[in-house]
Nucleic acid binder design. Structure first.
Length: 581
RNA sequence: GACCCUAUCGUCUAGCGGUUAGGACACCGCCCUUUCACGGCGGUAGCGCGGGUUCGAUUCCCGCUAGGGUCGCCA
């Protein structure tokens, strides 16, 4: 393989919105990357910037040109550099023939545009996932968490988990754990928020019984523990004359003017008042029972926690006007918003709690690998743009950016996830396969701990890549872990014939005489026996498989025989002969 | 009812004014394989409709239609 002219990867975390290509330039130049505004506009071209000095042209990370280019991309002239502007040239500009060829782009773009805004250290991204503990984690919520996490990891920012447990009635410790476990299963680690279940950090302090504890400097991260903060903020609004008591509740004096919501994904959205809102634009922020409502606490927490980017489902887009008004009422500029599209049912309707596949837990139970689920979720509304489907999460982290997230809703395609899971199983290490397979077998009632570890591993090795779901493994390879197999009745009727009995007897004797019980010897032996009997190999293969596994389909026959070992195979053949007789 | 978002094969997507509209899942053939899979080759299938702008629109603009979201003392 040809040595790449570029260093492997920038060792620093790269701020929004630059791609790997830009990161490489930064590494080469020792420079700093700064945010641009129009990454989306320019398709697969990206500008890399060096604090008011130097820029270059790149294709996006997945572009083959990146790998094929034989020399570093051009830099713009000193004059342009001094002006603080960036040169943006089309890939068919004659200076970049390699890019042109690889990209097959035809359009030349020539744009001069200042893109340098703030120094990097002012761009400390802080994002949060703020679920309500309802007792389950919605797949859409999981993707929202994923996109937040991706953005935090891409920018080197902070990912915060906040539990919106204002609704005391349905809020339980178990419900919180569903969320923590779900995120943990997906591998989405958070920098601030509740302490993970079973974490050793629990020992640092002795938490008050029943009171959840948090990590991070902006806590607590449970809304139920932040009531003082809300009370103070409500008073602030009252003092400013922006909130007032109304029938026992507190209402916020909402602006009558349309509010522009700048959105990183959707663009600028001007939100007019609806007819009902025109009648009374003010809305309740504290209920008559004293409980603050979602809009209020959400804004206060984002404000207090220094959230810089709100990445959430598009179902919140209309509400964002209220949130922006609230931020302004507190005298603060709102964070940047990014509303990601929703995940719909296969029939295009909104996915609700009861719908098939809505709960993240179901994917664990049904035998999906978390890395496959994460990969699939990444592909819903985002694309690496290079025709790949299997994309390692680390690469997604490098490439992911908010402006490239699609704006339309996506339907959940279980078939594709199913396929992707199969791909992941095939690609994963054997160790990882055991790690996921053994608990799956246990869930199905097969306790592999009763068998020697080498046997279990060898058995599982013959199953890897054959099935797409771990939940299917029990049916497929369960015969390794039972005393006595159960014969498929239909197959038994077909294959356990008197004629086959004689053949199988002959095969058993031939097997018994084998000195080496390995797959190759077994295959030779079986074929030789078939030859002597004057039958096709299939005539022996099918009854043998049925006798040893009870099924018509399964792992490679010779390999499974080897794994079972001579004793078990003899035993099972004998039993089949008895049954046949 | 009002407000907001969206619109490429059945599904997920690439596409950023000139393409034989590319890939993947699913589906259908054939090959490989005496199980089941994997793999290989090929196929069916798409720019919602109507107006503009333009020499030229899948691509830009407007309208319509359709889908989704929001308008709570739910989150």
């Amino acid at each position: 393989m040809q040595q790449s002219p570029y260093p492997p990867l920038c060792p620093h975390r790269i701020p929004y919105p630059f791609s790997v290509a830009a990161a490489i330039l930064a590494a080469v130049e020792g420079g700093i990357l700064l945010p641009g505004e129009n990454a989306r506009l320019f398709g697969d071209l990206q500008i890399a910037g060096h604090f008011g000095v130097c820029v270059g042209l790149f294709c996006r990370a997945g572009c083959p040109a990146l790998r094929q280019a034989r020399r570093p991309p051009l830099r713009c002239s000193a004059a342009i550099a001094k002006s603080g502007n960036c040169l943006f040239a089309g890939s068919d500009s004659e200076s970049l023939p390699v890019h042109h060829q690889a990209c097959q782009r035809r359009k030349a773009i020539g744009i001069l545009r200042p893109i340098l805004t703030k120094p990097t250290d002012e761009m400390n991204v802080r994002v949060r996932f703020a679920p309500s503990p309802t007792g389950f984690l919605h797949i859409g919520g999981a993707r929202t968490a994923l996109f937040n996490w991706l953005y935090a990891r891409h920018t080197g920012g902070t990912f915060i988990l906040r539990i919106e447990d204002t609704d005391v009635a349905r809020n339980t410790q178990e419900a919180v754990e569903v969320i923590l476990n779900g995120l943990g299963w997906l591998g989405l680690d958070w920098d601030e928020g509740p302490i993970e279940v079973g974490s050793s950090r629990c020992d640092d302090r002795t938490p008050q019984r029943g009171v959840p504890t948090s990590k991070g400097a902006h806590g607590p991260y449970f809304q139920s523990q932040r009531t003082r903060i809300y009370q103070q903020r409500v008073q602030e609004l009252k003092d400013k004359g922006l909130a007032y008591d109304h029938e026992g509740a507190v209402k916020f004096k909402m602006t009558r003017e349309p509010i522009v919501i700048p959105d990183l994904i959707v663009g600028d959205v001007t939100r007019e008042l609806t007819d009902r809102e025109r009648l009374d634009p003010d809305f309740v922020i504290v209920r008559s029972d004293g409980q603050p409502v979602f809009h209020l606490v959400n804004v206060i927490d984002d404000l207090e926690m220094g959230i810089t980017h709100v990445v959430r489902g598009e179902d919140h887009l209309s509400n964002t006007a209220k949130h922006i008004a609230l931020f302004r009422a507190f005298g603060v500029e709102p964070p940047k918003y990014a509303h990601i599209p929703l995940i719909l049912n296969p029939d295009g309707t909104k996915m609700s709690k009861r719908d098939q596949g809505a709960s993240l837990t179901s994917y664990l139970e049904e035998g999906y690998a978390p890395e496959a689920v994460v990969n699939y979720l990444c592909l819903l509304g985002w694309s690496p743009k290079d025709n790949r489907e299997v994309v390692p999460i680390q690469e997604v982290v490098q490439m992911f950016d908010l402006p490239q997230v699609l704006r339309h809703n996506a339907r959940f395609d279980l078939d594709k996830l199913h396929w992707l899971n199969g791909e992941y199983i095939r690609l994963m290490s054997n160790e990882r396969f055991y790690e996921l397979a053994i608990p799956a077998l246990k869930r199905a009632g097969f306790d592999t701990s009763k068998f020697p570890s080498p046997y279990v591993k060898a058995a599982l090795d013959t199953c890897k890549g054959k099935k797409r779901l771990f939940s299917e493994l029990a049916d497929y390879g369960g015969f390794y872990f039972v005393e006595e197999v159960t014969y498929d009745p239909e197959a038994a009727a077909k294959d356990f014939t008197p004629e086959n009995r004689e053949r199988l007897k002959k095969l058993r004797d031939a097997f018994a005489a084998l000195s080496s019980f390995d797959a190759a010897s077994l295959e030779n032996c079986l074929k030789e026996t078939a030859k002597q009997l004057g039958v096709k190999a299939g005539a022996l293969v099918h009854p043998t498989r049925l006798a040893c596994t009870g099924k018509t389909a399964g792992p490679s026959l010779y390999h499974l025989l080897e794994v079972l070992g001579k004793d078990k195979v003899m035993q099972r053949l004998q039993r089949a002969l008895t049954v046949m007789g």
